[in-house]
């Protein structure tokens, strides 16, 4: 039916500096997914042919479902991420782009602490998803 195993996600640059803040979990996941890619991550921006600039990364939590007695029953967790990609000559390869991911989670007061840990699980899932989307966008960068 025309499906083929995805080849190496060729990025239009050989070296990339990923400007995630130190210790960023998304940055760690990004580095992990870049293993086995032809493009190499470098530690210093001046050594890179392209630079991924993380403009912002934030989390939001909103109540999206109230019970009939006005109690929160469902939350939506959001991961908001903005980035841009520039080459060594400061030319913009990808203009500032915002990615928003969301996951819903049920909530009750009695499970207040348990839900905290489930939220962490959902944020990890979103980070993983975010990195996938980010890699796709980097691969499609203007050549």
């Amino acid at each position: 039916c025309g499906f083929q195993l995805r080849g190496s996600a060729e990025m239009p640059f050989r070296t990339l500096y990923a400007g995630f803040p130190p210790g960023s979990e998304t940055g760690l996941e990004f580095a992990r997914m870049m293993r086995g890619n032809d493009t190499r991550l470098v530690a210093r921006p001046q050594d890179a042919q392209a630079r991924l600039e993380v403009l912002s990364e934030g989390r939001e939590k909103e109540i999206v479902g109230f019970s009939s007695t006005g109690r929160p029953r469902e939350h939506q967790l959001r991961l908001l991420f903005s980035f841009r990609l520039v080459d060594a000559g400061e030319e913009e390869l990808i203009p500032p782009t915002r990615l928003v991911l969301h996951r819903d989670i049920t909530t009750t007061d009695t499970q207040y602490v348990a839900k905290e840990q489930e939220e962490a699980l959902l944020y990890r899932d979103m980070q993983r998803d975010l990195v996938q989307q980010l890699l796709r966008r980097l691969s499609a960068a203007r050549r």
Partner: peptide, 22 residues
């Protein structure tokens, strides 16, 4: 049971070893 509950049945939770959180 101090801090544990049943996880939601959703896509992220499907790929978790434990069906409880906590």
């Amino acid at each position: 049971v101090f801090d544990t509950g049943v996880a939601d049945f959703g896509f992220p939770q499907l790929f978790s070893e434990n069906s409880f959180v906590g």
